[in-house]
Design a protein around this nucleic acid. Structure first.
Lengths: 234, 234
DNA sequence: GTGTGATTTTTGTTGCAACATAATCTTGCA
DNA sequence: TGCAAGATTATGTTGCAACAAAAATCACAC
């Protein structure tokens, strides 16, 4: 499980609300691609689906909208957004700036056991790819990145990066094969770990930026193919 | 009034909710320093204060918490956060990354009349400073920055930057004199406008980064004085 | 005075009904 | 067949009461 550091400061609310549970479930569905772009979400349907009243369901939807994982398509219509090429580029630029920063700062605070954990995570990525378990590969890839970003001890930064991943994930995680394409990112990940081991912050940043750019190219290509094949219903 | 582009994509919900009004009012109070760090906000008090029921008041508080403008200090206690030196540095690093990016991209899309508008805004800043109207100076300063950031046409980026300003503003906008100190940022702003006029994206980024760093030094100094003078009640 | 435990008050969350309005369906006409 | 207007359904928002839990207050012993 990724951090779930959803609140910027330490969340002193110990007992999770019902709305949080709903939020997590929708988030999970979005990440797993259970809802594709254009799918409509309603308060009542969600409430009945999860066996809660409308208040927590409404809370969860509002929260997702605020984070950009859902958008209004009309005054009473929230949908999973279509991420067009322009939005994808924008979010990628933000990722480069923010994840690059995180990677750089992480190099200064990394420990030996941190690197060991990263190595294990990378092994899980490789194994999943070898066995064509793309969903698992994607998940471990996420773990790898956030394990690095967590190192720098910047909660605001971490929370912001998470929302960016969610915005992209909602639209693109149904593209496992293309996204996780053969040995996705393995070279960049190795370079990142080397940089961390040597305390070379510039190298870590470069490796992460390269990883993001590689992923961007794949996503852009996938988006082009998708939009050319079937005309988008919007 | 600043954009209020609170929703990432174009907000198709035309009729604003009651909760939005509450949200805007609290945001306004925070920016104006009407609530200092440590102040407690309760749903019922807010609701009665603004003459609405608890639902919109609760919505507004939750939204502010999600944006980091308020934080939980306990399971049932939301307060205006104390921004310590570390958090201030973190947010400054994020601002450098994100506003630097926005400034750079703005240079490629700026028009002549955009620059004219910026010039007018700068005149308002100068006038306000000359007359010691620090609150107005701060407001116009904000307008200046966001007028630039809006140019790049990146709604996700703009929304994220806004939340960063809000997080800092809640803790530091009660420091007008120190913050708006003699001709605050006028040199950097001139450099930014020159860079925009010449389409020199690097120069614009450098000017904005310099402006952010100057502001950071002032805030850090003010914070040091404040925390040394009176022991913080936390 | 000071700390500790019980008691009272306050508070966030949840469920739910009412309301206004937007989305959707139906019907009629060209 | 296409489309426009009216009727119907569905939906988000709001207000409010109930509940559990936390915070604040108070009492009392030391």
């Amino acid at each position: 499980m990724i951090t779930s550091t959803q609140f910027v400061a330490e969340d002193d609310r110990q007992q999770p609300r019902l709305g949080d549970r709903v939020y997590q479930q929708i988030k999970e569905r979005l990440i797993r691609g259970a809802h594709g772009p254009g799918d409509k979400l309603t308060v009542r349907a969600l409430a009945e689906d999860l066996g809660v009243s409308s208040t927590p369901a409404r809370d969860a939807i509002n929260r997702l909208v605020l984070e950009g994982a859902l958008v209004y398509a009309g005054p009473k219509t929230v949908i999973v957004p279509f991420l067009d090429a322009q939005a994808l580029e924008e979010i990628t630029l933000m990722r480069l700036a923010l994840e690059g920063l995180a990677a750089e700062k992480a190099a200064a605070r990394v420990s030996g056991e941190d690197i060991d954990l990263l190595r294990e995570t990378q092994l899980r990525i490789n194994a999943a790819l070898d066995q064509r378990r793309y969903a698992d590969a994607l998940w471990s890839n996420k773990e790898f990145h956030f394990a690095i970003y967590r190192l720098c001890g910047m909660p605001h930064l971490l929370a912001t990066i998470e929302t960016l991943w969610l915005r992209i994930g909602a639209s693109f995680n149904d593209l496992y094969p293309e996204f996780a394409e053969a040995k996705y990112g393995v070279h960049n990940h190795m370079a990142a770990m080397e940089g961390l081991a040597e305390g070379d912050s510039g190298a870590v940043r470069a490796a992460i930026e390269s990883d993001i750019r590689d992923g961007y190219r794949r996503l852009k290509r996938a988006d082009r193919e998708r939009t050319s094949a079937q005309t988008r219903p919007d």
